[in-house]
Design a protein around this nucleic acid. Structure first.
Length: 212
DNA sequence: GACCAGGCACATC
DNA sequence: GATGTGCATGGT
């Protein structure tokens, strides 16, 4: 399996090239984006983030002080705006309480502990937590998402019952752990998913993973 | 107009 | 413990 996962990575990288993830100017922006992109197209998330930037609200305290209703209005383009406003608030409370709003204050916290604490926040599940850890905090954690599962399933690397942890372990036990590799690998899987592994109509012809 | 998107919490059985 | 459902905009 280690050889296969390695081969898949090399195929994807040579086919698509570097994906330059995560799009975002600061770690804080990445974390907010991670919440807003839950089951949502990234283009819609960009609109929401642009709104927050326009009013200079993309800062922990400023965002936390904002009334839920106003926050929901600003992030409206990202969909699920009422529930996401609540989720953002619960994350912001955690982030401010825990770090004082400064990312540097959590740089010493061990990854497993940080992950547990993120998962305890309402609105943060495994993918969101791991996206924050990898793409905002540069921790070597593999991010699993719907594309990852669909791709592995279609190539019969997993069964339909494989859960998040099982899929994550598949990568983390078989790859050489590293932020750079995990960053690029997940981004490439998303790219492959968008281009070749759609939900109902698999556009398989031309797929760079053919015959793997 | 249908389908889809870089999930998650909660209800119900 | 497994399965179903609500949340919602905007692009293709």
């Amino acid at each position: 399996m280690a050889r296969k996962l390695d081969l898949i990575y090399r195929r994807l990288y040579s086919f698509f090239g570097a994906q330059h993830w995560w799009p975002g100017d600061t770690p804080f922006e990445v974390m907010i984006g991670a919440m807003l992109t839950q089951n949502t197209n990234w283009l819609n998330v960009e609109k929401a983030i642009a709104n927050l930037k326009k009013y200079k609200l993309l800062k922990p305290q400023a965002l936390y002080k904002l009334p839920d209703k106003r926050l929901a209005e600003l992030i409206r383009p990202s969909g699920y705006y009422n529930i996401k406003a609540k989720r953002l608030k619960s994350f912001l409370k955690f982030f401010i309480d825990f770090s004082g709003g400064n990312i540097k204050n959590i740089s010493h916290v061990p990854t497993p502990s940080l992950r547990r604490q993120l998962l305890a926040v309402k609105g943060i599940g495994p993918e969101t937590a791991d996206s924050m850890l990898l793409y905002a905090l540069n921790r070597p954690v593999f991010v699993v998402d719907a594309y990852t599962k669909r791709i592995l399933l279609r190539h019969r690397f997993i069964g339909p019952d494989a859960d998040y942890d099982k899929i994550q372990n598949l990568f983390m036990k078989n790859l050489k752990s590293g932020v750079k590799l995990f960053n690029e690998y997940h981004a490439l899987l998303v790219r492959l998913g968008k281009d070749f592994c759609l939900k109902n109509k698999p556009r398989c012809s031309g797929c760079p993973l053919k015959s793997i």
